[in-house]
Design a protein around this nucleic acid. Structure first.
Length: 848
RNA sequence: GGACGAGUGGCGGAACUGGCAGACGCAUACGGCUUAGGACCGUAUGGCUUUUAGCCGUGAGAGUUCGAAUCUCUCCUCGUCCACCA
């Protein structure tokens, strides 16, 4: 034994092996046609902040690392890449503050992240590193955007946006925290702004239905379906009294329409002023102004009193002939349904409150089917559709509400008063950001062509193009006149150098100030045109990065189709619950679109998804600087080494749980690794050891348990079983080398540094332990020769008997033995056995 | 308000498909080894009792079952995400 081996010294062995692994790489990832069976393991790539790797990163990435190390030892061709989601606001804000170019700050941060990851032994395919801010990368992000445009899925429209009156900038949703500007804390307002949108709603049904094809946690599927929020109903037209105008409202409850008593329109709706009479116009204008100033928070706060103002006009309910007053109110959301709502106060919570407040008529038309049909409409609306009966509604009377809904839809459609409609909670994706640090949207606007009404689909190239979604039908052909994509051969459109990174006072991106960049010739008519100065949101680069890892240096396509066919889909995608609806849905959308245009194979990008939990501070609160409860991974590494940190992170509990940090728990793992070290060193020089059946059984049980548990990401119980194994080994006077080797192999994915040192230096084996095949178990040995059978009387444990394995499946023998057990005999005395339940190899239960 | 999930010792958590509740670790107590130890090794540790054993016990209450932490129903508490979506 070398002297250096007497104690476990991670701070010496870990940097040593880190260097060796860099010099003599452990793992090869082979592209087709070589390679055999593939496994593509993906973990969400981080935003490289200046703070460095935090404990949450270490946690997630350790899960991924252990899992992929085992897959590699099992002989699979594993792709386990890493990259940087590096566009984003913190870096831009840092640039605004310091003047340091975001690219420079990004480089510094990614270098630091990479160092920290290597220190934790994360075995990524560094030769496939991608960075969303690299022009060679965002060239393809822009290319994808252009395909969206050409296929009629990218368009510009006026949408309400957040606005900070103090900073004078447009706020992205992620910049509005609790209704306030993230930067300065001022109350955010809303204003209308022309923005690029992606028509994700065109894929809404497929995004929901095709969830059946993938293995995601149920709650993720439920959340996505919920987010998409498909409802079926009808849009009903209501003629405006005295005007040649019909307004339409979407309803999922047309069965209540005989009870409609008013109509409400969103204050931002383009028809508002048209619908207002001269004498009411002042009040309405005032109300619209007030609504605009209201913060998102104020406006959407639950249980807040509803406000509104009467327009002076009426809409006609053709079912009843009733004149319904038209109101303006900010509880109506412009982008939901048609932006106009018909009020049925007797059967809708919001309508009821609004009617009460403004003393509008409440007409009940649906009542509970049971409990005698009684309901106090003065106290609350009746909103249940399932156990409800319609009354007071002409030809619908007496029908169950669900039946009535069908009947009236058919009636309205036949009459031409309504149209069947499907609505989604999901909205088209606002894709513009007025910021510097993002991918420039590769579009050019030509006012001359716009004036002539020429759109891209009218050009030579566009005429021969077959869009997936006809721009004629969707109206884009006219709407997008004057907009042309940058010629694909001219991609990437690089971010120009700017002096000021701050958005302009008008809310435009800082790019708008760079004249020589903005002003270009129109690709169609060569007259003076402007580049789009908006940039893409953060979500853009991350919507397809998993494809680029497959072929990161390809400059002909986003990736080679052959390679895509081999590697896709991702076999396991690990990430956080915060991406359940946005990132996951967005990237599925992009992938489906790319599949539709035959750029990638397969309907779904991720075959399976798992979501990790959260590590809380030692005090049980979420880690945060202000709480002062942040655990820095590098500090733990310094004190105990990376192996202890990795082991503890995995031993804390299930990978998807929320768990508090425990310094004592870390020490427990440190002690465990020390015991392993001493045990292996102590027995490393032994030559012989006789056969030990008990030991063999335990060893094979451990291999089985660890193998199966890692597969299911149950690392905590895998580690527990290795601990049990060690506890058993420590009782043995001597141990065969083979047993020690198995122990080291099982530990290799968890504690890669220590396993390598024990394997090579202590046990004297060849480099490297990580290139060894994963140990196999013998299922015969796992079972063992003696089996314990539980004996119950009336379901209560009264004893147990031990029998040779081959006798445990025959009831009479087991019963005989069980009755001999003293404690069992006592409980059976003076009693009649009514029934005997027997489960082979497990249990016998006497019912008396 | 909605969707989803979770409630097990002093603590983190085990328990496969309904079959020994509390694995493993922490903490604690006692003992050993030590000049010493907050190191290491060993033993014990859900509660109660009349302790070779019995009773109680997985948020509360009911139910199904020979048998329930696990399945069903009602309720309570907590967490996460979403939220005036017509």
């Amino acid at each position: 034994m070398k002297k250096s081996q007497s104690n476990y010294r991670p701070w010496e062995i870990e940097p040593k092996w880190q260097k060796t692994w860099e010099k003599k790489p452990l793992f090869k990832t082979v592209d087709p046609p070589a390679g055999g069976k593939k496994y593509y393991a993906l973990v969400e790539f981080p935003y490289p902040s200046g703070e460095g790797l935090h404990i949450g990163h270490a946690f997630t990435m350790t899960i991924q690392d252990i899992f992929t190390r085992k897959k590699r030892m099992e002989g699979l061709n594993v792709l386990n890449p890493m990259g940087w989601d590096a566009f984003g606001l913190p870096t831009e804000n840092y640039a605004i503050k310091t003047g340091i170019h975001p690219a420079v700050a990004t480089k510094k941060n990614t270098d630091q992240f990479q160092q920290q990851m290597k220190r934790l032994a994360f075995a990524y395919n560094w030769d496939r590193e991608v960075n969303t801010t690299d022009p060679d990368y965002y060239r393809w992000t822009q290319w994808i955007f252009i395909q969206f445009f050409k296929h009629g899925l990218a368009y510009k429209a006026e949408t309400p946006v957040g606005w900070c009156p103090a900073c004078k900038i447009i706020l992205a949703n992620e910049e509005i925290v609790a209704g306030k500007c993230e930067r300065c804390g001022a109350e955010a307002e809303r204003r209308m702004q022309s923005q690029w949108l992606l028509r994700i709603t065109a894929y809404a049904d497929r995004l929901a239905e095709e969830l059946d094809l993938v293995d995601y946690p149920d709650y993720v599927k439920a959340a996505q379906r919920n987010w998409i929020g498909r409802t079926e109903g009808v849009t009903i037209g209501y003629p405006v009294v005295g005007k040649n105008l019909t307004i339409s409202c979407y309803s999922t409850r047309p069965d209540t329409n005989f009870g409609a008593t008013f109509v409400v329109i969103a204050p931002e709706h383009p028809l508002v002023l048209k619908l207002t009479t001269q004498e009411n116009i002042g009040k309405v204008r005032q109300y619209i102004e007030k609504a605009k100033k209201k913060s998102e928070l104020e406006r959407t706060e639950f249980k807040k009193e509803k406000t509104g103002v009467f327009t002076g006009n009426y809409a006609l309910n053709r079912l009843t002939g009733k004149k319904m007053p038209i109101w303006v109110a900010d509880f109506v959301v412009l982008t939901a349904g048609t932006g106009i709502v018909v009020g049925v106060p007797a059967h809708d919570e919001r309508d009821w409150h609004f009617a009460k407040r403004y003393d509008l008529e409440i007409i009940p038309v649906v009542k509970p089917a049971d409990s005698g049909g009684k309901w106090d409409f003065a106290k609350s609306p009746f909103t249940d559709i399932d156990k409800a009966e319609v009354f007071n509604s002409d030809f619908l009377n007496g029908l169950p509400a669900l039946k009535a809904k069908e009947k009236i839809i058919n009636f309205l459609v036949k009459k031409g008063w309504g149209k069947r409609a499907v609505n989604y909670h999901l909205r088209d994706w606002i894709f513009s950001r007025q910021h510097y640090w993002g991918e420039p949207i590769p579009m050019i606007y030509c006012p001359a062509c716009a004036k002539k009404g020429i759109s891209w689909w009218d050009t030579k190239e566009g005429k021969n193009f077959k869009p997936l979604f006809s721009p004629k039908k969707t109206g884009l052909r006219r709407q997008m006149a004057g907009w042309f994509p940058v010629n694909e051969s001219e991609l990437p459109v690089r971010l120009p150098e700017v002096k000021k990174y701050k958005p302009t006072d008008t809310g435009e991106s800082p790019l708008a100030n760079i004249r020589e960049w903005v002003e270009v010739a129109c690709p169609e008519c060569a007259s003076g045109a402007r580049r789009e100065t908006d940039t893409m949101p953060n979500w853009a680069g991350s919507s397809w990065y998993f494809l680029r890892y497959i072929d990161p240096k390809n400059n002909q396509a986003l990736a080679d189709p052959k390679k895509l066919k081999y590697w896709m889909p991702v076999d396991l995608y690990l990430g956080g619950a915060e991406h359940t609806t946005l990132h996951l849905l967005y990237s599925r959308f992009w992938h489906k679109f790319l599949n539709d245009i035959k750029a990638v194979p397969g309907k779904e990008p991720y075959a399976a998804r798992r979501q990790h939990g959260v590590i809380l501070g030692e005090d049980g609160f979420r880690m945060s600087k202000s709480h002062g409860n942040v655990i820095a991974p590098e500090k733990v590494v310094k004190k105990f080494g990376a192996d202890t940190l990795r082991l503890y992170l995995m031993f804390m509990g299930p990978y998807d749980a929320t768990m508090p940090w425990s310094t004592k728990g870390v020490e427990g793992c440190w002690r465990f690794l020390n015991r392993v070290w001493k045990l292996v060193v102590k027995h490393s020089q032994e030559k012989t050891a006789g056969k030990n059946h008990d030991l063999a059984r335990i060893m094979h049980q451990t291999i089985k348990k660890v193998t199966e548990d890692i597969e299911e990401l149950k690392f905590n119980t895998a580690i527990a079983s290795i601990m049990e194994f060690i506890n058993e080994l420590m009782k043995q006077p001597s141990l065969p080398k083979k047993t020690l080797e198995i122990l080291v192999l099982l530990l290799a994915p968890f504690a890669p540094f220590m396993a390598e040192e024990l394997w090579c230096e202590v046990l004297g084996n060849k480099y490297s332990v990580h290139q060894q095949p994963w140990p196999k178990y013998d299922s015969k040995l796992v079972k063992g020769e003696i089996v314990t059978i539980i004996v119950q009387v009336n379901g209560k444990l009264r004893g147990q008997v031990q029998l040779p394995s081959n006798q445990t499946s025959k009831q009479p023998e087991v019963e005989k033995r069980a009755k001999k057990e003293a404690n069992v005999t006592r409980h059976l005395e003076d009693k009649k056995i009514k029934k005997v339940i027997f489960i082979p190899r497990k249990l016998i239960n006497f019912v008396v």
